[in-house]
Design a protein around this nucleic acid. Structure first.
Lengths: 330, 330
DNA sequence: CTGAAAGCGCTTACAG
DNA sequence: CTGAAAGCGCTTACAG
């Protein structure tokens, strides 16, 4: 591979001039620029970005910490990150953490080893050994930690859940089951709070026996639905904390020869692409997945370049999408 | 941040010794090692990996070229890549190419700029300006280019498609529609060849009017199914080239008040996680998605480290998964 | 087992 | 506008 030295020899100029021609062309005379470009073409020179990054002490790379890359919602978020990163001149390193603290720390550490300039964390953990670490530019998106000053891009999950629960209540349901995500998640807690708030507003009381746990996967939703529908006083509607679990719940209801929605209403959360095509099409809360990614990346860019972001706590809009999996109580 | 120099001063040894303590501890005396480790702890030293990579002329990074990160099959492949890369000490850069040649070239170029040591390409294109370029370690996985010497990890798509078509034929279907992927894909061509071979073996003739095109998305499958089912002599079975299109087709059939499978059999390909839970559960071909990734990464590792891979053209096993979306012809 | 020194390929003050 | 020189933080022959 040709180096900047080879180009400079052929062009008969210094390496500084070659470097400037590439990075600050306005500081080089028209004529010299021409000569240098010819030499670059002749040698098929490509600047060594690794060397440049090393010299300038910037990797121009960000690392994204994602619990599961194969999750359809997260993969859309990452698409948004990638597109914006590419536009801003950053490469994106993938850190599939499976939610494990060790792996999060390992990947987040890349900022300390100069492999990355910043971090996007999609899970509700602080990915540092020392939780008060303030040395790494980081943006927390999707499932966000409470009670820290990490910049965030999130949904108002309380409001969204409340709106969905209100929808169910307005349909006449008074005994509503809930298929919850794992306890130690901000999203889970916020959605539960919204759910409870709607119940309260509707003069209904929350019954913790109506809460079953899943892990956001389809089979876990089916299992939780089975438990709920086998209750002596089974609910007539089920509020699921994501679409996968709702799809599992629908499947389970059908298996138990229940009609959705006439026997049992089921709602989801996220609006992944399959939800529109489930049978029946799923009532859910749609979120702008790609925008979580693009906003987080843009905010991280500001942080990495010492510009104060306009807004350090972005809330993205949601929308209730009422399809056919929810209906009036019989 | 502390540098190796700081550590060496505190430990009272040369930087060479600090470096060796980290990378070749057996070349350093027990006692010195102890002193150095104390100094590392004291200074909270973390080696600058960017500097190390620059010095050793290895980025320890691979770039993966993926047409669409949000595709459920590809995201599982990437999970397999990431896990194996992590184990082998490599970082993975994400190159979402949307199948565009420009973007593929841009990302593949990272090998020439020292940003990556190798490439995993998941699409059936050669991602180089000069198609005969042999300077970059690359492995082609999933949808593979024909007629090159690029190492590959793939499925025997001809055999798999043939087996699926045989299944349909064995059910008594003689008029079988096909929802195809885009023409310029090796996978599409191979699956079509397998489909035709089965027809021929069964004494049936291939009717190109029975082939509709989709783009592997759910809506495109629904549209293609609509066309197929509106044909004067509509097929009684539809062979879809992936699960998303099959799910779209099922939805469309139901919309047209056709029962699946008693009126129309529909088969998919890939066995994504939703297929087991579609209604009816989808008959499909299952592929070991993660293993495409882990095998490709392992092979690329061998290539990058100048070890001859044991096998430069790996074929992974598939399995026909017969569920409830296909049935006897009425 | 250890250290002094060279050097990886760039960029950027500094001087002219 | 241009060049000589220093230096980013490491690793690794080489010599002892």
């Amino acid at each position: 591979m040709a180096t900047i030295r080879d180009v400079s020899k052929i062009a008969g100029v210094s390496v500084a001039t070659v470097s400037r021609t590439l990075s600050k062309p306005d500081k080089v005379s028209e004529k010299t620029r021409q000569i240098v470009h010819d030499a670059i073409k002749q040698t098929n020179y490509k600047p060594d970005i690794l060397a440049r990054n090393f010299r300038t002490r910037k990797s121009s790379t960000v690392v994204v910490l994602v619990p599961d890359i194969a999750n359809p919602f997260f993969s859309r978020v990452i698409r948004g990150i990638e597109q914006t990163a590419q536009r801003l001149g950053y490469a994106v390193l993938l850190g599939d953490t499976q939610g494990e603290r060790d792996r999060e720390i390992t990947y987040a550490n890349m900022v300390h080893t100069s492999q990355a300039d910043g971090i996007i964390q999609l899970d509700c953990h602080i990915p540092f050994e020392d939780k008060n670490d303030r040395t790494s530019p980081i943006v927390n998106a999707c499932d966000c930690v409470r009670g820290t000053d990490m910049p965030t891009v999130q949904l108002d999950n309380v409001a969204a859940a409340k709106e969905m629960a209100n929808h169910l209540i307005s349909l006449g349901h008074t005994n509503i089951g809930i298929i919850s995500g794992p306890e130690n998640s901000t999203i889970t807690n916020d959605r539960l709070r919204g759910f409870k708030a709607a119940l309260e507003d509707g003069g209904l009381s929350y019954n913790s026996a109506n809460r079953m746990y899943g892990d956001y996967s389809i089979p876990s939703g089916a299992m939780a639905a089975s438990d709920l529908l086998s209750l002596p006083d089974a609910p007539t509607a089920i509020f699921c904390m994501n679409d996968e679990m709702a799809i599992g719940a629908i499947r389970q209801a059908k298996k138990m020869e229940l009609n959705v929605p006439s026997d049992i209403s089921i709602s989801g959360f996220d609006d992944i692409s399959f939800s529109e095509f489930s049978d029946p099409p799923l009532t859910t809360v749609s979120q702008p997945a790609e925008e979580f990614g693009s906003n987080a990346m843009q905010m991280l860019y500001d942080l990495m370049n010492d510009e104060e972001p306009a807004n350090k706590n972005i809330f993205l809009p949601f929308e209730l999408v009422i399809r056919e999996s929810t209906g009036e109580k019989k």
